[in-house]
């Protein structure tokens, strides 16, 4: 019964998102809008990993843009220079992300969490430096072209690509829901609280930190590959600071430690600039201000509003509220 409930709560949201997402191309006429929705999916994949790492496990990586770019570059180089097929380049690029995350994670995750933050930020910068200056290998600031994806001679169209990425995003969300609604989620949440208590209950704290750091890096790499395929190119801007700013803004505005915060935040961050004229110049300031205001006044982000909203409706219905409304925890 309860396991049915768990399974239902794991699948219901993603199923709805899949349904809505599948209808979107029918409603949109311009390729530009389709591109925006595709970018939302990519950012959601990227930030879901970040949310698991920071929102749930309380460990912060500021080098997700580095893994985003690492995935994209590894994939592109394997495909173009290495002549690998799509189906071998994709897992290989993800494995490279996992390997690098392992190497960075082992020395850092035994330490306090800000060491990870600082060193991963450094990783992002180092990667950006390599990408823009090792010209013969990475193409320098101009980047590289990504060959278009073909399956048995058929070139994948923009719409087909969107459906593929949508499906991947939904699967990532299902995986996230599975993680956070089982003992894995509890183990992750115990990391952000009391490590000694977690250890004395049998949680191998270092191993779990490493696992979730690797998972979030692999998801960042996956998003990077998707971005490379959609943009038909990779360049050093994949690993640059604005990507990190977007990741943080999406995660914090959407709601840290919530299931659909990444998607919600990605929608806001991708769509909002379209409505604001002259957004370009002050984009950085707006992101910074949003980040700060949400940190101060809405630590659970936009997702935090939803249970409050339900709480209000329930109270308006004048029925005695059963139990306390949980701030920030969404359990549909």
């Amino acid at each position: 019964m309860k396991s049915l409930n768990t399974a239902r709560s794991m699948l219901a949201g993603p199923a709805l998102i899949l349904l809505v997402g599948a209808l979107v191309p029918l409603l949109l006429t311009s390729g530009f809008h389709l591109r925006l929705v595709t970018i939302i999916c990519i950012y959601t994949i990227l930030c879901t990993g970040f949310n698991l790492l920071y929102g749930y496990a309380g460990q912060i990586s500021m080098g997700q843009q580095g893994f985003f770019a690492l995935g994209a570059y590894a994939f592109t180089l394997l495909m173009s220079a290495g002549n690998w097929s799509f189906w071998s380049a994709l897992p290989a690029a993800l494995l490279i992300c996992a390997g690098v995350a392992l190497l960075i994670g082992i020395p850092l995750l035994r330490l306090r969490s800000h060491y990870l933050a600082m060193a991963t930020l450094c990783f992002g910068l180092v990667f950006a430096g390599i990408a823009s200056r090792w010209i013969e290998f990475t193409g320098g600031t101009a980047g590289m072209m990504v060959p278009s994806v073909k399956f048995s001679g058929h070139i994948v169209s923009r719409t087909e690509l969107y459906y593929a990425i949508l499906l991947i995003m939904v699967l990532v969300l299902v995986m996230q829901n599975f993680i956070v609604s089982t003992h894995m989620g509890r183990a992750l949440m115990s990391l952000r609280g009391d490590e000694t208590a977690a250890q004395s209950l049998g949680v191998n704290v270092t191993a779990w930190k490493l696992r979730i750091f690797i998972l979030s890096s692999v998801l960042a790499g996956l998003a990077g590959i998707a971005s490379a395929v959609v943009n038909r190119q990779v360049n050093p801007s994949f690993s640059e600071f604005p990507i990190l700013v977007s990741i943080l803004t999406i995660a914090v505005v959407g709601g840290l430690g919530t299931r659909y915060g990444a998607l919600l935040g990605a929608c806001v961050v991708v769509i909002a600039p379209q409505g604001l004229a002259a957004f370009g110049e002050s984009e950085t300031i707006i992101y910074g201000v949003c980040l700060l205001l949400f940190l101060m006044f809405m630590p659970h982000g936009l997702s935090g509003l939803i249970p409050k909203l339900f709480g209000r409706i329930r109270r308006k219905a004048a029925s005695p509220a059963p139990g306390v409304v949980k701030a920030g925890e969404i359990k549909p």
């Binding site: 309380g58 912060i60 500021m62 969490s113 800000h114 933050a117 700013v245 943080l248 914090v252 110049e281 002050s282 984009e283 950085t284 300031i285 707006i286 992101y287 910074g288 201000v289 980040l291 700060l292 940190l295 101060m296 630590p299």
Partner: peptide, 30 residues
């Protein structure tokens, strides 16, 4: 101060200073 008053964790305050850095860069850019 505002973040400390709201009981934010050091990691959150750290992100707050990063937000401040982003804002400072944005203003300087203008």
């Amino acid at each position: 101060q505002p973040l400390v008053r709201r009981g934010a964790a050091p990691l959150t305050i750290m992100i707050g200073t990063l937000a401040a850095a982003i804002i400072a860069t944005g203003i300087a850019l203008l």
